[in-house]
Design a binder for these strands. Structure first.
Length: 458
RNA sequence: GUGAUUGUAGUUCAGUUGGUUAGAACGCCUGAUUGUGGUUCAGGAGGUCGCGGGUUCGAGUCCCGUCUUUCACCCCA
């Protein structure tokens, strides 16, 4: 008696249909990254637990998947450990863990290879990561991240180029209505200073981050609960109200928090980034300064970004920012970097929701050879290798079967063209070439067919 | 991690207060059509009712456990 197999919680298979579309997204992103000089990197699925723990906060540590030691993993434990619980036990039974994101393994890589790398070092990385989170729609235990980072320079050109890359990827994918939001940790610190909440930045940022979700009143409630004074909150409300086109936002911000050194620095940097973006030839971008943008990750120190596709139910599809000391935790100081990440699953969902997927992503085989008998099958094999030799994706129906079945195969596999071969075709050398979409059929030589097929394959 | 929620054919879902042989649509297979797929028509196959236990004369239906799905919180892509 066999049991029906199932998948572990929060994991998925990607069938050919889904893979066709995912590959289309990934290929588009790769092309753009490479155009901007980013080089590929892959790191192992597993890292040493010591590399991973302590980098994502207490909650992050709990979400790490740990890998049990091989063999008798209980060998190093004692009865005492059982009594002391997980904390005392864990490092004795598990020394490896699945990676939680791509940034920390990247930092580890940079530190380990610091003497071989040429800085500024630009890399992109598209790999799965694992989190023992409780899954929900759009949240999985295994999912792909797609990161691009530059380390070893603090030039704001990097930030500007990130905005360019985001724009190019989104436009190539067919998105029109989206916004790239930019803010700066300096601006947020300036706000904290200005409202007299220095030292409480984390609470403040976490609350601000929820603004677009829960509204200003709920944010105010939360801050009051966390011990912020009434005056601070009122002052914050006026600052967060600042909105509009970038120039006026900059203007108003300077008036409000220009007195703070870090605030001013943040404002100037954002201004500079926006200038650089237009120097790089992108005037009509969807970038806006949004003072309410506050990404939770604590390692960001400079500019931060987030990208939203408008009019869809999905949250942000991309995000990132500058960090001044990512490699410091591994002992390499003063390496500034800036990076960002696309959420492939979310881009997929957005494209799906907006119906932007091109059918071409689902064409795997370009042409199927259909035949009537053994003789025409043999003849078809020659045609098949002729097609393949010029790079056309072609296949033959591998067994003798009714035409209905062979054409049905082409139809279900979304193969756009067929070549039917029978005794007539063999005699004349003119093959029956059919466009499955229009139903149109012509008698052509194999050379003519190749001409017809070539453009589709390129 | 906390609190809910879901699971019946390949898929999406019906299934009455616990009562005979668990249904539909789509999909699949065969034929109408032995040189042509998508449309149409006719027929057919397909179910350990998530899994394990319990209550009962009797459980898809009630109870417990477990796994899974979805949702809110937390956090995040």
């Amino acid at each position: 008696m066999s049991q029906k197999p199932t998948l572990p919680k929060g994991t998925r298979d990607f069938g050919p249909q889904v893979m066709g579309r995912r590959n289309y997204i990934i290929d588009t992103i790769k092309q753009v990254f490479q155009k901007f000089g980013f080089m590929p990197l892959e790191t192992p699925a597993m890292e040493n637990l010591t590399t991973l723990t302590g980098k994502y906060g207490d909650e992050g540590d709990q979400l790490l998947f740990k890998v049990l030691n091989s063999g008798n993993f209980l060998a190093k434990t004692s009865l005492e450990d059982y009594e002391n619980g997980v904390k005392s036990m864990l490092h004795k039974v598990a020394e490896k863990g699945l990676k939680y994101d791509l940034t920390v393994p990247f930092a580890r890589y940079v530190v380990m290879n610091q003497h071989d790398l040429t800085f500024p070092f630009k890399r992109y990385q598209i790999q799965p990561v694992w989190r023992a989170d409780r899954p929900q729609r759009g949240r999985y235990r295994e999912f792909y991240q797609c990161d691009a980072d530059v380390v070893g320079t603090d030039s704001l050109i990097c930030e500007a180029e990130i905005i360019l890359m985001i724009n190019e990827v989104l436009q190539k994918l067919g998105f029109i209505d989206y916004s790239i939001k930019i803010n700066h940790r300096g601006i947020l610190s300036g706000i904290a200073e200005e409202i007299g909440a220095k030292g409480k930045e984390t609470d403040l940022f976490v609350a601000i981050d929820k603004l677009d979700k829960v509204g200003i009143d709920k944010v105010a409630d939360e801050l009051e609960y966390k011990g912020f004074t009434k005056e601070s909150i009122e002052r914050l409300k006026t600052i967060l109200n600042i909105s509009g086109v970038s120039e006026s936002v900059v203007q108003q911000l300077t008036e409000n928090i220009g007195a703070s050194t870090s605030g001013l620095k943040g404002i100037n940097e954002v201004q500079e980034i926006i200038n650089l973006v237009s120097s790089l030839g992108l005037d009509d971008n969807n970038t806006e300064l949004d003072v309410t943008l506050a990404r939770g990750l604590s390692y960001y120190t400079g500019a931060i970004f987030e990208v939203k596709i408008n009019n869809v139910s999905i949250g942000s599809v991309s995000g990132g920012g500058r960090y001044d000391d990512l490699t410091g935790i591994f002992g390499l100081k003063d390496i500034s970097g800036v990076g960002f990440s696309f959420g492939i699953d979310r881009l997929y969902d957005c494209l799906d929701e907006l119906n932007l997927f091109n059918d071409e992503a689902l064409i795997f085989t370009n042409v199927l050879i259909v035949h009537f008998d053994q003789e025409s099958l043999n003849y078809g094999l020659k045609i098949l290798s002729e097609l393949r030799s010029v790079g056309i994706r072609a296949e033959v129906y591998p067994e003798s079967a009714k035409l209905k079945k062979q054409f049905g195969y082409a139809d279900k596999k979304n193969i756009p063209f067929t070549i039917a071969i029978g005794s007539d075709e063999i005699k004349s050398g003119l093959l029956s070439f059919k466009d499955m979409k229009t139903g149109e059929q012509k008698k052509l030589t194999s050379a003519e067919i190749i001409k017809n097929l070539k453009p589709i394959n390129e």
